[in-house]
Write a protein that binds this DNA or RNA. Structure first.
Lengths: 150, 150
DNA sequence: TTTCCTGCAAAACCTTTGCAGCAAC
DNA sequence: GTTGCTGCAAAGGTTTTGCAGGAAA
């Protein structure tokens, strides 16, 4: 935990930014909720517990800064709010989402299934892939068994 | 063209909805610009040429209706506006996007590369896949050659 | 008549921006 | 003292909603 904070602090310093108390509180919230996909509002409410005087605009500005630094990833599931994920320490992110259209739950798959596809893309289309995003919509196992019960 | 309008008309009628002149104008715009990913505002401006008295709210309501009927797909590239794509006549959509981070161009790949992955998902995770979305971010061939020139 | 649909305007919503004050170096 | 950061409030942009009128069955 502290090591990751330090690592982020150094990344910011390398670009001339400071890890202010507000920014640190925001980063800690992201670290403590790494499994979730928090919206800016979510982050704001959680940060408030640690730093009650913080403003929503600062949270937005921090999330934008972290996105630019590739420390977090801004994702959009189509519900009108942006969500933010801490990136793994590796530069590329390799996780996919399973979104249940019944209960709304979202789970992650950490495997990378797209390596061969990316090679194909570069060869056949001349497109240099830097990142990708893969989401599946469907019905999760839990909802399937509940539907079977009814 | 007329056949596809008819097909959509029947889908609507099957659910008790009418294909009003405003809705038809909207559908025609989508059909005529199938290659693009139009925002609601884009659709609105194009529809206006055919039906000048139409309101933006009606376009939104129509696009929402068509989305619910699975006639169009609402997608979100993270720029803050929803975009709408006509779905192919087959129920599943199988195209992927290549988004160039340099020039912003977007091209489509119509192949379906994910069939095997979806089977794997159903078997290993018990997740019933209904749809998916796959986008790649990177640098397109054109921008790569321009960068090489500089 | 009853139901659905429309246009307009207002509201809601998320996000960004302007600005004055503050903190750090 | 300069620079960057913050909080607040206001503005911005997209999308939704309320409502009265209109069209269709």
């Amino acid at each position: 935990m502290e090591a990751r904070i330090d690592s982020i602090k150094q990344k910011l310093h390398a670009q001339g930014y400071k890890l202010t108390p507000q920014r640190e509180a925001t980063v800690r919230v992201l670290l403590e909720n790494e499994a979730d996909h928090l919206s800016a509002e979510d982050v704001f409410m959680l940060v408030r517990d640690k730093a009650p005087e913080i403003g929503l605009a600062t949270v937005y500005r921090t999330l934008e800064l972290l996105t630019e630094m590739h420390i977090v990833e801004k994702i959009n599931f189509g519900d009108g709010v942006a969500r933010y994920d801490l990136r793994a320490d590796s530069d590329k992110h390799h996780h996919h989402h399973l979104i249940c259209i019944n209960c709304g739950s979202m789970s992650e798959i950490k495997e990378d299934w797209l390596g061969p596809l990316e090679e194909k893309l570069e060869q056949e289309y001349g497109f240099q892939v830097l990142d990708h995003r893969l989401d599946f919509q469907g019905v999760c196992a839990k909802c399937q068994s509940e539907q079977a019960t009814n």
